[in-house]
């Protein structure tokens, strides 16, 4: 099996493709970092599943889930 010689278009579009790739990579990193921060801060998102589910909300007074 041999590699195809790159088409001229690929080298011409290298900058554009690289830019799009890096942008998407940066977006993934930001979403991941946001997720970590939100979870760390203990947002009530775990208790929300389209409707509030009290069973999933941590009871702060009892120190655990009911």
């Amino acid at each position: 099996m041999s590699f195809h010689e790159p088409h001229e278009m690929h080298s011409r579009r290298l900058g554009r493709n690289l830019g799009v790739g890096l942008t998407l990579g940066a977006f993934i990193i930001i979403v991941f970092a946001l997720t970590v921060v939100k979870i760390d801060n203990g947002g009530s998102m775990e208790g929300f599943d389209h409707t509030v589910r009290p069973g999933l909300v941590v009871d702060e007074n009892a120190g655990g889930a009911e």
Partner: peptide, 17 residues
């Protein structure tokens, strides 16, 4: 075809602009 592509083809900087 190649000439047309080159003429109308935008780089990443053009989209950023």
């Amino acid at each position: 075809i190649n000439t047309q592509l080159k003429k109308g083809e935008a780089g990443f900087g053009d989209y950023f602009a």
